[in-house]
Amino acid sequence: MNLEDLMEVWRSQDASPLHGANDTLLRLALRREEAKLRAQRRRERWMTYFWSAGMVAGMAFFLAIMIYPDDDDVLTGWDYAIPIVGAAAALLWARAIYVRHRAQAVREQSFGESLRDQINRQLAQLDYRATRARLASLLGYALLPIVCAMAIILASWRINDRPFSDAGLLRPILFMIVWIALTVGADFWWQRRLVQRDLLPRKRRLEALLTELDAP
């Protein structure tokens, strides 16, 4: 049997397909997928807005309290600068997240539609996920929230009429440092585990597929 014969046999299934599809259930599956996609996009958008707005509102609140003091405390220019810096850090953080996601989206779109491009796109996605398992990247990502947290502590301190020279200020700062170190450490451990257990094996399989593509 030559190739022409095989192709004829193959084409015979067009008249008598091996399967059929339930159109009603198909539409149901698509509606469900559509709703899931929309909900996911909406959730991501609102999370970013929520956190940024929360940070900015918090800083604005501190600033308002400083601008309208109910006593005769003397506030310096530094006291006013603290919530402004905190709010700026919150906005920059939201912007940095957006730019990072956008750059990755553009990178993924730069691939074509062939199987090779799809594999390279998935490798790029895995590399993007894996960056969170690098300590330097994680610290860089946490830097702006640290500035925000520090601004909240310092602004609260000053609103309560306590000077920066007060040794008690060390306590909340130390607490914040320990809290952030624990959070970053736990996230780092979790991401490393994810990379080792999930991302690396997937990456190896994709690379094996690329090798298979190139194999004669």
């Binding site: 299934q13 599809a21 259930l25």
Partner: peptide, 21 residues
């Protein structure tokens, strides 16, 4: 998975060489 989305047709009248392929 939405169960019943894909149905399997009867093999009546189908060339058995399709399954072989």
């Amino acid at each position: 998975v939405v169960e019943g989305l894909l149905t399997t047709s009867s093999s009546d009248g189908r060339d058995p060489r399709v399954e072989w392929l």
